[in-house]
Design a protein around this nucleic acid. Sequence first.
DNA 1: TGCCAGGCGGGGT
DNA 2: ACCCCGCATGGC
Length: 308
Amino acid sequence: MKLRKRMIIELEPHDEKFNFKLTASAYSFSWNFNGRLYRTIIRKSNIMIGIIVQEREDRKMIAEVYSRENSLKKDEIEKEIRDHLGTDEDLEEFYKLCRSDPLLREVIEGLHVRRTDVWYASLIAVAQQNASFRQGWRMIWNLLVKYGDRVVLEGHENSPIICPPRPEFILERGEQVLKDSGYGYRSRTLIEIARTLVIEDENALRTSLRKIRGVGQYTYGLIMMLAYRDYSNPVIDRWVRGLYETVGVRNVEEYYRKHWGKYQALATWMLTVMLDALPLSKAIERVRKGELRPSYTGLTPLTLWRYY
DNA sequence: TGCCAGGCGGGGT
DNA sequence: ACCCCGCATGGC
């Protein structure tokens, strides 16, 4: 699959704080980010749009847009890109809550979640079940490299972008594709999600997601955050619980509800980035030492692209 | 080697 | 309402 260059769009973030490099780095693979260029494929009503974004010296972002179609509407494409990167997201309220939180009081501002489609969100969320950060991202990497679709952008022939295999492909080839990638017993859940997407549609999935076997509170909250920027669900696992208990929060569920409110899921995501997604025991050591900001060393959410 | 990890659901009390 | 266990897989 090859996409041709169609247009260039200048993007000005909604606020001064927006940090392109951090936003492009977080949980990116090497084909998405190389330290300077951010690339991805956005699907909009069956049209594939490739984008390459970079930041200029004046902090304005420049997006090159690639597609097979030549009748794209510039303002619609711009809206898609802004939505993907979160350039219009106002997180002031969230940052205010961070200041009075024992774990996120030193949060780095300007980092935004990149919105994905619901299928990729599901592949990410299910991979994190009962597995370390390293193991989970290894599963996703395996799946993409072994079975993903490589999309080439005109003029960038030697660095294809890898997209997750479509749900149709997973259904056709069966559970083995996921097991080959290390998903183990989690595969069944993804088969159900793929089936709902293919037989019904995204809307049906969204409303029945929580009823699918293998999708509990954690997975549901993660998918809603990544796919819809809905941060209002609690995403609390052993890791988050252990960390908050370390700093003296007794009822973590209640604290999340009352303190984080509509930013519950974002708080968890931000914490994984700030603490380098270290395994729990090491993350607790970090917290005890008061090191609440990312180290940028080793394999972490912000450096994943250097390794994978 | 065996044990555990950003969950989950089922079956016990 | 709780508590407890098994579950695929990979890393140490």
